[in-house]
Write a protein that binds this DNA or RNA. Structure first.
Lengths: 112, 112
DNA sequence: AATATATGGTTTATATATAGTCCATTAAGG
DNA sequence: CCTTAATGGACTATATATAAACCATATATT
């Protein structure tokens, strides 16, 4: 990593991060929370909140989710109970799948 | 910042990040993609992918979304076109809200 | 209009996330 | 079985995310 990675994300990922940021910003203003107040509640700096609302992909997902929760943007369109249920379901699904994915004789199904 | 921040996130945020990681891991295995193969496609290291699948909140949201997209986990339950539509809607909503949120001098100071 | 505050954009110092190795263990598949 | 790839977990060096303190501007509220 001697040169800067300058990693570029797909359009979809950027759009998703950008949308989440806009939803957060709109929700915050609708609740009449100042940027500083929101940042304090989330335990982050105001500058980081600005980047989150701008959709900066390099922000930690925990910080983004925390702010989203504070301003009332539901991730997964589910409350915490439903989240736990989905987690159990995902775990059960995972338990049915092979623990190691072995590369098949041929290339993988979809390549691009 | 002389001492480690050790920032703790809410249960909901941790649950959301953890669920997303589990969904990603299940989707990857179902598609029979190797961790290395997936990391390569996402342009990240295998170690970071492990942390993402474990639900580490400190992972960049762009990296998480990118991996989610690659393994077929839809954020927002929406394709790119729908995402653009929601973005437009969020922008319009935002345009209707005041640009600066002003705290009422006395009224909302103690709102609970 | 005047004033106070929220916001946007810097800069800097520091903590830490990440890549890139390594090794040990596990578990597919022949 | 046996072989070999996949995974998990360390460790280190480096890039960078973050907090904090600024300033300038915009914009609510009086």
């Amino acid at each position: 990593m001697s040169k800067s990675a300058t990693h570029s994300y797909s359009r979809y990922s950027r759009a998703a991060a950008g949308l989440l940021g806009k939803l957060i910003r709109a929700a915050r203003k609708q609740r009449r929370l100042t940027a500083q107040e929101t940042a304090d509640r989330a335990g982050i700096s105001r500058g980081l909140l600005q980047r989150i609302e701008k959709g900066d992909p390099k922000c930690g997902i925990g910080a983004v989710f925390e702010v989203a929760t504070i301003v009332g943007v539901q991730l997964f369109d589910a409350d915490e109970a439903a989240l736990a249920g989905h987690t159990r379901q995902a775990e059960q699904h995972l338990a049915l799948l092979p623990k190691s994915v072995r590369r098949s004789p041929r290339a993988v199904t979809d390549d691009f």
